[in-house]
Amino acid sequence: MGSMSIWHWVIVAGIVMLLFGRGKISDLMGDVAKGIKAFKKGMADDETPAQAPVQAPPVSAAEPVRTLPHAGEPTPGTAIPASHMPAGDRKAV
């Protein structure tokens, strides 16, 4: 009773054939096969290498960017008056 004999499988197959019919099972298997083929095709499309990326033209050496001093900030090379320096930065002149 623990194992199923061939007659059990024949009865189960007969019930399945009666419920679904022969045409429905073959249609179902055809749909499953189409799904598998579509999946494989999609996986193959993902593995194909993409077109070579378009490279930007080489950048030529440009002149360095010069920044402007902020308002209240002296231009480079000029002395800062002691009255504008923080107390800790003042030196005896």
Rank of each mutant, 00 (worst) to 15 (best):
V16E: 04
R66M: 12
A79E: 10
A71M: 10
A44T: 02
W7D: 00
I11Q: 03
A52N: 07
I11H: 01
V59T: 08
G23F: 02
T67P: 02
P57V: 04
I80F: 00
A38F: 06
S5G: 13
A50Y: 08
V32I: 15
M29P: 07
T67G: 10
V59A: 13
V10A: 11
A71P: 11
T48K: 15
I11V: 09
M17H: 07
K37Q: 14
M43P: 05
M1W: 10
I36A: 08
A71D: 13
V16T: 08
T75N: 12
D27A: 15
I36F: 08
G2S: 14
F20S: 03
D27W: 09
T67Q: 08
S5E: 14
I25F: 03
V10D: 01
S3E: 14
S83H: 11
P49S: 06
K40Y: 04
G35S: 06
K34F: 06
H8T: 05
D46W: 09
V54R: 07
L18R: 11
I80M: 05
G77C: 00
P76R: 04
A33Q: 12
A92G: 09
V65N: 07
S3C: 14
K24A: 15
R90I: 09
P74H: 06
I6V: 06
I80L: 05
D27P: 01
M43C: 09
R90C: 01
S60W: 04
I25H: 01
I80D: 03
P58V: 09
G2T: 12
L18C: 11
G21H: 00
G14R: 02
